[in-house]
Design a protein around this nucleic acid. Structure first.
Length: 459
RNA sequence: GGCCCGGUGGCAGAGUGGCCAUGCAGAGGACUGCAAAUCCUCGUACGUCGGUUCGAUUCCGGCCCGGGCCUCCA
């Protein structure tokens, strides 16, 4: 079988073959730390978390780097507006980000480097590029000279002329070519800055990733990921910088993998359009696992529409899977079902993998032989594990409630169930149903079975 | 305008040159004191017009519609 990934570079699915079969290296562009992450920002986190889990299963060692941009003009503006320091803003935002992504059951990457920790590496690359004639200093800026790289534009499929023709911004006078982009720019006294051969300044956007990737993963590595909207200019420019600085390393990463956008109201969810929901607020409506499941019900390269109905459906879908697992004790993950592995290996076909999860759940619900049930429950658990799902106690899943919710306590519920049981034994069904209705009004649903009565909180 | 993606049943969403996706919602049935959960059954799905083919939702072309990128973007 083996892993196949869609490579943006060639716009087709390819067999994945790492440079070093004993050590797979992956770099994914993270976020700019100036505000709460919205659910669209979480998509690449979940998608590449899944890829990370899969790679860890398939290869002996995986290094996963997800960077954080902590130097950026949006950060400066926001810090000033909030009346706080840049450091305060980025630290707070980052802590929140890590908590939110953890709630979505994303594993921590091996490294989460920050741009400000890599200033020397950034300056070094800028110097190398100047030395090779791929960049030049002008008025305190350092610019990458796009015409110096004949291959520029391969990833995004555009050439310099198209770019210039479609450009929506004014061309700065110090640029030799309209397509040239900034590696380093001067800082005013009220802006953060570092000393450099070109005066006090700060890095441009793209170069931080080139610097962090080379330091943590080497000059060329296996997978570079991020959102579709980063293909141009961000990833195109990363390739330009890295490959000109370190000749013979094109295309920097062998597999360029991009996730599709999350839509909200049929349009791309984005801060600038204002049509976003933060992960933090969504976590008050639903468990993080439901958000994750929802994200995985769509293929990562397709656009995914985010709706309240969709989130409800995601919860219902997980309800069904946890229901199948409930009352089976706590089955340990056993063998990963072939169908699920095959779906994931085929360019992360998570919708297909989830459909297999449901097929296993159906078999499990139908099985009567205890050994067969144990086997299927173990398979379901193992399949869930690689997808970052189904690892909690089913009882806990069904009893989830928003933080700070003031609904009926568990002891009180148990007491009412006890009273209802006595009524039922006395065949006083009117009283038994009255108690059940009373609980239902409080969002508690009862299920009677041969083993006794269990309860859930309605979603 | 240029360059890329898409258009599948009420909804979400895979996939395939000829046979089943899967889930949610809905209808009927089994089970149940009644429910809930579960199981079974059901609904003439593949934007449009042509072409290739014994056969196309699947391949090719035109058209229509939607989305993304074109130096803030995950």
């Amino acid at each position: 079988m083996g892993l196949k990934l869609h490579n943006t570079l060639w716009r087709k699915k390819e067999e994945f073959s790492p440079l070093d079969p004993n050590h797979v290296r992956m770099y994914v562009c993270g976020v700019t730390a100036y505000d709460f992450a919205h659910i669209g920002n979480a998509r690449p986190v979940i998608v590449f978390d899944l890829l990370y889990r899969l790679l860890k299963r398939l290869y002996p060692r995986v290094t996963y780097v997800r960077n954080v941009t902590d130097i950026d003009d949006k950060i400066n503006d926001r810090a000033r507006a909030n009346g706080e320091t840049i450091r305060q803003l980025t630290e707070r935002t980052l802590a929140q980000y890590q908590a939110d992504m953890g709630a979505l059951l994303a594993l921590s990457p091996d490294y989460e480097p920050r741009a400000t920790e890599h200033i020397p590496g950034i300056i070094r690359i800028a110097e190398i590029l100047i030395g090779k004639g791929n960049a030049y200093a002008a008025e305190g800026h350092v610019l990458f000279n796009v015409p110096s790289m004949p291959d520029y534009g391969r990833l995004s499929g555009r050439n310099r002329d198209e770019m210039v023709a479609g450009a929506r911004v004014d061309v700065a006078p110090y640029k030799r070519d309209p397509a040239d982009f900034v590696l380093w720019k001067p800082s005013r006294d009220d802006q953060p800055g570092w000393d450099s051969p070109w005066g006090r300044g700060r890095p441009g956007w793209h170069i931080e990733c080139s610097a962090m990737a080379v330091q943590l993963l080497g000059e060329s590595f296996d997978i570079h990921g991020g959102g579709l909207d980063l293909i141009f200019p961000h990833h195109e420019n990363e390739i330009a910088q890295s490959c000109c600085a370190f000749p013979g390393t094109w295309p920097m990463a062998r597999y360029w993998v991009h996730n599709g956008m999350l839509n909200f109201g049929s349009e791309k969810m984005s801060k600038s359009l204002g049509n976003f929901r933060t992960v933090n607020e969504l976590l008050r409506d639903a468990p993080g696992e439901a958000l994750r499941y929802y994200m995985l019900t769509g293929h990562y390269r397709q656009p995914l529409e985010w709706t309240n109905e969709g989130l409800k459906e995601a919860r219902s879908g997980l309800d069904r899977l946890y229901q199948a697992l409930q009352g089976r004790g706590a089955p340990a993950a056993s063998e990963l079902p072939f169908t699920v592995l095959a779906a994931l290996e085929d360019d992360l076909n998570t919708p297909l993998a989830i459909s297999h999860l449901h097929e296993i759940a159906t078999e499990l619900n139908k099985a009567s032989d205890p050994a067969e049930k144990r086997r299927l429950a173990g398979e379901l658990k193992a399949a869930g594990e690689i997808m970052g799902l189904l690892q909690q106690d089913p009882v806990a899943w069904f009893r989830w409630q928003p933080a700070g919710s003031e609904s009926l306590g568990e002891a009180e519920i148990a007491g009412m169930i006890q009273r209802r049981l006595l009524a039922r034994k006395a065949r006083n069904f009117a009283e038994a149903d009255r108690i059940r209705d009373e609980l239902k009004a409080q969002g508690v649903v009862l299920e009677d079975s041969a083993q006794g009565t269990t309860w859930k909180r309605a979603s």
